[in-house]
């Protein structure tokens, strides 16, 4: 089984969020970047598990971004990807990223393409679906479980009020959510091996731009918290009814 995993780099979950250039750009100054958790913990690890279970195949990681993505890519290799691809252009928008990935993947015969359900910086959850459309493949978002038998994939996902079990034929694109796998910490051997695994740098296919993020802002500050003594806890319900008017 030939698997492609989409990997992106995001600010650490505890990173300070600030903007520069008249609030038109994220201020990356002093920020630690990590591999997007959905890509790393779920998509990549499940891809490796499926390859291991099949006893054959390959797992390729693909990243759209400049040379500053090197650490992210090496981490994916250290966790176990066989090789990596980097499309050498800054990632600006979902459609652009999807076009770059689709242009690369088009003739490569991947059986399965895995993406994280969303990135934790832009929270769009669009790239997987767009890649699927551009490659004319089925796509399931928000998958919390993925099994493959032959060319049939079984996917579970949480839907409001329950769990839905879906079946589809490969090749397909799947958006990985929590539950699909458990995080793997790279060991020393993996980290050493990652240094010599192949990383192919591919030029951009120059997709059209259809949307852009033009301005950022921080959300309005919260007012002061109103404390209610524990002995009078019932007052909270009253206040929610008469003051906040939410019940």
């Amino acid at each position: 089984m030939k698997i492609l995993v989409l990997i992106s780099q995001v600010p650490d979950t505890t990173a300070r969020i600030a903007f520069t250039n008249n609030n038109t750009q994220y201020d990356a100054n002093g920020v630690t970047f990590i591999v997007n958790p959905y890509d790393e913990w779920y998509a990549l690890v499940r891809a490796l598990e499926l390859k291991e279970a099949a006893g054959a195949g390959s797992v390729t990681s693909i990243t759209v971004g400049g040379a500053d993505n090197e650490a992210t890519i090496r981490k994916a290799l250290a966790i176990g990807a066989d090789d990596a691809v980097r499309i050498d252009v800054a990632a600006l928008e979902a459609y652009q990223v999807a076009c770059e990935v689709a242009a690369y993947a088009k003739d490569k015969g991947f059986d399965l393409i895995l993406a994280g359900k969303e990135t934790i910086d832009f929270n769009g959850g669009q790239v997987g679906a767009m890649v699927a459309e551009l490659l004319d493949l089925p796509y399931v978002p928000l998958a919390s479980k993925l099994d493959v038998a032959g060319t049939t994939a079984t996917v579970e996902r949480d839907v409001p009020g329950g769990v839905e079990v879906l079946e589809l034929q490969l090749p397909a694109v799947i958006g990985a959510a929590k539950g699909m796998a458990e995080q793997r910490i790279p060991n020393m051997r993996g980290i050493m091996a990652a240094r010599t695994k192949p990383l192919t740098v591919v030029p951009s296919s120059n997709p059209a731009s259809v949307a852009s993020t033009v301005q950022f802002e921080l959300p309005p500050a919260k007012g002061a918290v109103k404390m209610i003594p524990a002995e009078e806890a019932g007052k909270l319900i009253e206040l929610l009814h008469t003051e906040a008017k939410v019940i």
Binding site: A94, Y95, A129, Y139, V210
Partner: peptide, 21 residues
């Protein structure tokens, strides 16, 4: 969940910009 499986696909098909959420 339904919109997330459809809206980005529609956007890619029509080469249209998509505002997610």
């Amino acid at each position: 969940a339904t919109g997330k499986a459809v809206a980005p696909r529609v956007a890619a098909r029509l080469k249209a910009g998509h505002v997610a959420g």
